[in-house]
Amino acid sequence: MRSVHLTEEIIQAYALNGTHEDPLVVAHIHECETCRAMAESYARMFSALEEMPVATFDFEVKELVLPQLPARAKARPVLVPVLVVIAGSLLALGGAGWYFREYLSGIADPSVPYLLYCLGPAALTLLVVLAADLFSSHRQKMTRLEYY
């Protein structure tokens, strides 16, 4: 007989299924009196749990719990002011561009390649930073969801 016994998880799995995929586990339970007694004990407990009637309550849990929860503070709408600022900025830039359109057309033609070389990497860097922030925020929210 081996002096090392099986873990609780293995014995519980054996007691729940009546068998195990590892033949060494089955052989050990048949040979070891301690592990066999534990497996029989778990089997009796599992069968007793299956025979228990389903609990029914004559009250509504929601009616008891919801009044005790603190009232949720109303969240301020953040999107509306942000959209107003963005729309105002675009309108101001568009108006300035329309007003100075004759002057800007002469400036922009020779500098378009340089502008693309400067703005392209900046825009790409901004997209990477925003995507990383979005991923981090999503991971934090999902972690919080697992605890509640």
Rank of each mutant, 00 (worst) to 15 (best):
I86A: 08
L124S: 08
R144D: 10
A73Q: 15
E60C: 10
P23S: 13
D109M: 11
V82C: 03
T125M: 10
P113A: 08
A122W: 04
G94P: 04
Y42T: 02
G94S: 11
E146S: 02
V112N: 01
A37N: 11
Y14K: 01
A55F: 03
I86P: 00
R72D: 07
S136P: 00
G106L: 06
K74Y: 03
A108P: 00
R144H: 04
L145F: 10
V54L: 12
A108E: 14
S136R: 15
E102K: 05
L64M: 13
K62S: 06
R36A: 07
R36W: 03
L130H: 08
G95F: 09
E102R: 10
A96R: 05
V54M: 11
E146M: 05
A55V: 14
H30Y: 08
A92F: 09
Y114F: 13
L64P: 08
V61A: 12
A123N: 06
E50Y: 09
L69V: 10
F100T: 14
W98N: 07
E31S: 15
L49V: 11
V78L: 14
F46V: 03
F135K: 15
E8Q: 13
R76Q: 07
K141S: 10
V85H: 15
P113G: 04
G88P: 05
Q68M: 15
T34L: 04
V85E: 09
V128Q: 01
R101E: 07
E63N: 11
V25C: 04
V26H: 10
A73M: 08
L83V: 05
A108W: 04
H138E: 13
V61S: 09
A43P: 04
I86Q: 11
R36H: 15
E102P: 03
Y147N: 00
E40R: 12
V84Y: 03
R76E: 11
V128N: 01
T19F: 13
S111C: 06
D22H: 13
D133L: 14
S41V: 04
F135T: 13
T125K: 12
R2V: 07
V25A: 02
Y147K: 08
V54P: 05
V25Y: 01
Y99K: 12
G94A: 06
Y147D: 00
E9A: 15
K141F: 10
A87G: 12
A73I: 02
G97V: 02
L66S: 14
L124I: 12
Y114H: 11
L79K: 04
V61Q: 07
S3C: 05
F59Y: 12
G106D: 06
E146W: 10
R139L: 12
S111L: 13
P110F: 00
L130P: 00
P67E: 01
S3R: 15
E40I: 01
L130R: 06
T34D: 15
D109I: 02
E40W: 00
D22I: 05
L24G: 09
Y148W: 07
R76S: 09
T56C: 05
M38T: 13
A96S: 08
V112T: 15
A73V: 05
L130D: 09
L66I: 12
